[in-house]
Structures are given as C-alpha cells and as structure tokens.
C-alpha cells in the first residue's frame, strides 16, 4: 500500500508541472479564443533567457526579474504585431499565426542563445525526503509548492480583481465587453504577459529536471490531454487535469505498463483524454454555454 501511495503522490507532484503549463494555455484561450501553440516555445525562450543571464554571472533574483521583463516586452510585441492585425479572423487563422509564432520564438531563442543543452541549477537538491513512511523527492515537493503559490496568486487575480472580471467578461462575450469600454488590447497584453511569466516558472522547473533544451518546447503536446480533461476555459480545470494526468500516468506505468511491455507514459495521457472526449467533451470544468429553454 505504501508503494501505491508513493506512486500516486509522485505522479501528483509531477502533475502540478503539467498544470502550470496548461494554465498558460487556458489564460490565452479565455482571452482570445485561440489555442496558443507558441506557449511551449515561450516556455523555452523564458528558460533559455534565464539560464543565459545566470551563466553570465547575473544573480538569481535579478536574472529572474530581467526574464520577467523580457517576457512582458515579448507579450506586448506579440499583441501589437500578431494579434491586433488579425483581430476578428477565424480561429484557424489565429491558430496558424501562433504556430508560426512558435517557430519564430524558438528560432530566435536558439539563434540568440545557442541550441546546446544547458544545465539549470535552481539550488534545490533532489534528495529523497521521508514523509511518514513515504519517500518523496524534495525537488518535486518544492516544485509543487511553487506551483501552488503561483496558482493561488492567479486565482485571486482572476476572481477578485478588475482585470480578472474583465478577462472573464471578454471570454464570455467580446463584443459586449467592447461595448462597455473594456480595452481588449490591454487585456491581451496582460494575459500574454501573465502566460509568459507562468511559462517562465514552468520552464525553470522543467528545465531544472531535464536540462534546458529544445525538447522543452514540446511540453505543449503534454498540455493538450490536460486541457481536454480539465476543460479549455477553466484554470481550476487545468490544475485538476494536470493532477489527473500526472497521477494516472505514473500509476499506469507501474501497474499497467508491465502487462503491455512497459513504456506507456508517452501515450497513456492521450488515451485517457480520448476517453474523456467520448463522455465529457467540454472537460471536467469547461464552461458549457448556458442555454435558457
């Protein structure tokens, strides 16, 4: 039984990282109705920027701050150069734009900062830690704690503040939001900046795990099943979806994997997402349109 709980908890902790990545998508999807394919390359760009600065001898906190500034400037540029000119175009147009954007951001990141694998040391030792009878990774625990803090801040931001209510208003009915003077461009700028910052945190945590390299941008693909399970429009859904995917993946690898010859982690989440599409296409927490009859 201890082993089961260890597997479960380990999966849940890994799941918080999936949640972090997924939240970036949810924010942008809510504000502009587009699946931002570039989220993964934003994450890579953020992590690479941080590592490069840190390698140049910039202290940790300052490097973090500078990277946040870079991500905010990037968000402003994307809003001005990509989103604003394409406003009111079809979803597929916007999707193609973010697809193109992802290659540009990735190319820029590698061109400016090199494509070799960079080690990222956040100063957290990955030593086993005993919680009661359970053995857990200290790094995972701290990563999860960081995710929880970030998510709490975001939840407060989007539920309690003017910006949050504006964002939900835009997500609900963009024309109506414009009609009462909500500045759509401002909302996009804020949301892309926040998504970039979330990407930075996710990028650092993932990067510390597997090194900062090109494959970091592929976590986009991992976020998809999370979003399908949790729902594209809900931050809460992204969190729960991430936890479900993390836990299910880990449990499946240990308990089902041996029956299928192992190595099922890469695809198990997608099979799970497919099952969810059959029974709950809007995801667990996705907003279904309110219809009065």
């Amino acid at each position: 039984m201890t082993f089961f709980f260890e597997t479960l908890l380990c999966g849940l902790l890994a799941g918080t990282l999936y949640s972090l990545v997924a939240i970036g998508f949810v924010l942008i999807y809510k504000a502009s109705g587009v699946f931002n394919f570039a989220q993964g390359s934003m994450l890579l760009f953020a992590a690479l920027t941080f590592v490069s600065l840190h390698e140049q001898g910039v202290p940790f906190a300052l490097a973090l701050l500078l990277t946040v500034v870079v991500m905010i400037v990037g968000a402003l540029l994307i809003e001005r150069l990509v989103l604003r000119p394409l406003v009111n175009r079809s979803q597929i147009t916007l999707f193609m734009a973010t697809l193109g954007l992802s290659f540009i951001v990735e190319g820029l990141a590698q061109g400016l900062m090199g494509s070799q694998v960079r080690a990222l040391d956040l100063g957290i030792d990955d030593v086993p830690l005993f919680v009661g009878p359970l053995m857990l990774s200290q790094f995972d625990l701290i990563a999860a704690a960081a995710a929880v803090v970030l998510v709490t801040v975001l939840a407060l931001l989007f539920n309690k503040t003017r910006i949050g209510v504006s964002l939900r208003a835009v997500a609900d009915d963009t024309t109506a939001a414009l009609s009462i003077g909500i500045n759509l461009n401002r909302i996009w700028q804020i949301v892309w900046a926040v998504a970039g910052t979330v990407g930075l945190v996710a990028g650092l945590l993932w990067g510390a795990r597997q090194g900062v390299q090109f494959s970091l941008s592929l976590v986009v693909l991992k976020a998809l099943p999370v979003l399908i399970i949790g729902g594209f429009t809900s931050i809460g859904g992204a969190i729960v979806g991430g936890l479900i995917v993390g836990a299910a993946e880990n449990l499946a690898e240990v308990y089902i994997g041996p029956l299928l010859g192992g190595g099922i982690t890469p695809w198990f989440a997608y099979a799970l997402a497919l099952a969810f599409l059959y029974i709950r296409p809007a995801g667990l927490f996705g907003e279904r349109a309110i219809e009065r009859v």
Binding site: R168, D172, D173, A176
Partner: peptide
C-alpha cells in the same frame, strides 16, 4: 446596449 442583450452569462 446591444441587440439581444449580450449579458456576460457566466458572470
């Protein structure tokens, strides 16, 4: 005030 009311239904 738009035709068809356009309230924010989820809010």
């Amino acid at each position: 005030v738009l035709e068809g009311r356009h309230v924010f239904g989820q809010l």
